[in-house]
């Protein structure tokens, strides 16, 4: 665990691209994340899993610097995100790629302009170079043919692939995926899963995947963190997770209706609510 005070540790932590130490975060007085410790090794593909609303998207936003930790530290690529200036944060984000839940493609730009967006904004490359790079990125996700379409003309799976091409447009060191599998049919889901793995390895990048899709993610990731009610309850390689005997992990992986995560929201007894017995 890095010492908060000494920043030259960044040389050491090159092997760990992301390090989160004793992180607490809340909206208002409600703590969403409690005492999170998490490391992501360079070049690996890590999944953060949990139920909807368990705080895993919040965790991703903390890594992307869209939210600030209340206590503890978040370190990305050797830099602490706490109290980072906007310009430093923007400089760091140029080395990051992020894919949002439903793609978040710019609806007023064509597929081509979406993928070329960061090149147009951040680089002074000539249009012909940008064109070649953009077509290569689109080709990598198999969608070179739709470059002139608008995002509204794409299917959900195709939009997700375009978003993937856009997230990797500047060959980022770290790619964040927010629910990349949400709302996809099984075929698109498999395609996206394979692409995430392939792009990660081809670019030599590091990826963090936030998802609740267990089966697909376990196929592609190197390491898994399980988050429940703001705490990391389990972690390990896919094999360890599959073999886990922890009741919560078991329930989650096999999709059982009842278990440590109760089916019933806490309430008074049924008999009470129906007025069969005095309170």
């Amino acid at each position: 665990m890095p010492d908060l005070g000494s920043r030259h540790l960044s040389v050491v932590s090159v092997t760990n691209l992301v390090e989160i130490t004793e992180l607490n975060f809340g909206y208002g007085s409600r703590l969403v994340l409690k005492g999170i410790n998490l490391t992501v090794r360079k070049g690996s593909l890590v999944a953060i899993m949990g139920l909807s609303g368990c705080g895993k998207t919040t965790l991703l936003r903390l890594i992307g610097g869209q939210l600030q930790a209340h206590e503890g530290s978040v370190m990305v690529a050797g830099q602490y995100l706490n109290n980072m200036s906007q310009s430093d944060l923007y400089a760091l984000r140029r080395r990051l790629g992020m894919m949002f839940q439903f793609g978040a493609l710019f609806t007023d730009l064509s597929v081509y302009d979406n993928v070329a967006f960061q090149m147009h904004e951040h680089t002074s490359l000539s249009e012909s170079v940008i064109r070649d790079l953009t077509l290569m990125k689109l080709n990598a996700v198999g969608l070179r043919g739709v470059q002139s379409l608008m995002p509204s003309e794409l299917s959900g799976g195709m939009a997700r692939r375009v978003a993937l091409a856009r997230a990797t447009a500047l060959d980022p060191e770290l790619i964040l995926y927010d629910e990349p599998f949400a709302g996809l049919d099984p075929i698109s889901l498999g395609v996206i899963g394979q692409l995430i793995r392939r792009l990660n390895d081809a670019l030599g990048a590091t990826s963090i995947l936030v998802t609740h899709d267990v089966q697909e993610s376990l196929k592609i990731v190197d390491y898994v963190y399980f988050v429940s009610e703001g705490v990391i309850v389990a972690q390990g390689t896919p094999e360890q997770i599959r073999a886990s005997t922890l009741p919560f992990v078991h329930q989650f992986i096999w999709g059982e209706a009842d278990g440590p995560m109760p089916f019933h929201y806490p309430a008074k007894t049924m008999a009470n609510d129906l007025g069969l017995r005095e309170a």
């Binding site: 944060l89 984000r93 140029r94 990051l96 992020m98 978040a104 609806t107 951040h122």
Partner: peptide, 17 residues
């Protein structure tokens, strides 16, 4: 709508204000 569909967040994550 750009905000609701996270396009503004996406832009921010691309280091574009």
């Amino acid at each position: 709508l750009m905000k609701a569909t996270e396009q503004l967040s996406a832009m921010e994550m691309m280091a574009i204000n």
